[in-house]
């Protein structure tokens, strides 16, 4: 069994989830509470990765992160290395690929909070920022957890985007889904089978967790 690929997968999913929770919280807050012209366009843009084929996202990321793209160019002038075919590269790809799954449940959780709780917090002297940290976040724990689980599941399943941006470098960018694909290509069905089997209990357990969290937030 290709433990290295499994390790890269888990590492990638954990990093993606951690980073996305921090990025998505303010985005979800703005989408839930602020009104500004063009908001629906911005919101649709944030959800776009969900609607695009992964290879299309992968294609644009290659353009962007390649040596002639602006992200790749800046990175190269700073470090001298390439963004493509690195763990950092697939992490960025995975984050962009999973953004909608982080933002949507969080936004829903924030919107469910009674506006009067925020009024009460302001009257008790809390700034908007303090109210976000002390009132909104603690009262949307189950929504945030649901979003974390969804992001985690979504990023362990990523394939097309990662293959395009990262290729298949063992220990770096070769994740389990790519390892399975390659094993099948080489007719190594037993290796593919073991890896594939590993996914089922993980995904199933996490889905049970999501359902549990959704039920908790309903009561």
């Amino acid at each position: 069994m290709d433990y290295l690929a499994l390790y890269v997968t888990i590492k990638l999913a954990l990093v993606t989830t951690a980073v996305l929770m921090v990025i998505a919280a303010p985005i979800a807050y703005i989408l839930a509470y602020k009104h500004f012209p063009g908001k629906s366009f911005v919101e649709a843009l944030i959800y776009l990765p969900m609607a695009l084929p992964p290879t299309v996202i992968g294609f644009y990321l290659i353009i962007l992160m390649g040596p002639r793209g602006w992200a790749g160019g800046i990175w190269e002038s700073l470090t001298g290395g390439s963004l493509l075919f690195t763990f950092l590269g697939i992490t960025i790809a995975s984050i962009i690929y999973s953004i909608p799954f982080a933002v949507q449940p969080m936004k829903a959780a924030f919107q469910k909070i009674d506006r009067r709780l925020l009024d009460a917090a302001y009257i008790l002297g809390l700034s908007k920022r303090a109210a976000f940290l002390r009132v909104i976040i603690p009262n949307s724990v189950s929504g945030i957890a649901a979003s974390a689980v969804l992001v985690f599941l979504h990023s362990i399943g990523a394939f097309g985007v990662l293959l395009m941006v990262g290729g298949s470098i063992p220990g770096q960018t070769k994740v389990a889904s790519i390892a399975i694909y390659e094993a099948v290509e080489m007719m190594d069905y037993s290796a593919a089978g073991f890896l594939a089997l590993g996914f089922i209990p993980i995904s199933y357990a996490f889905l049970l967790l999501v359902n549990r969290l959704n039920e908790d937030s309903r009561t």
């Binding site: 009067r116 709780l117 009460a120 302001y122 009257i123 002297g125 009262n139 724990v141």
Partner: peptide, 19 residues
């Protein structure tokens, strides 16, 4: 802003923090 008025406000229905 309400933060700086330092007043007490008890609402019609409960607005205690549920957490």
């Amino acid at each position: 802003p309400p933060q700086k008025r330092r007043l007490g406000y008890v609402f019609q229905d409960y607005t205690l923090f549920p957490n």
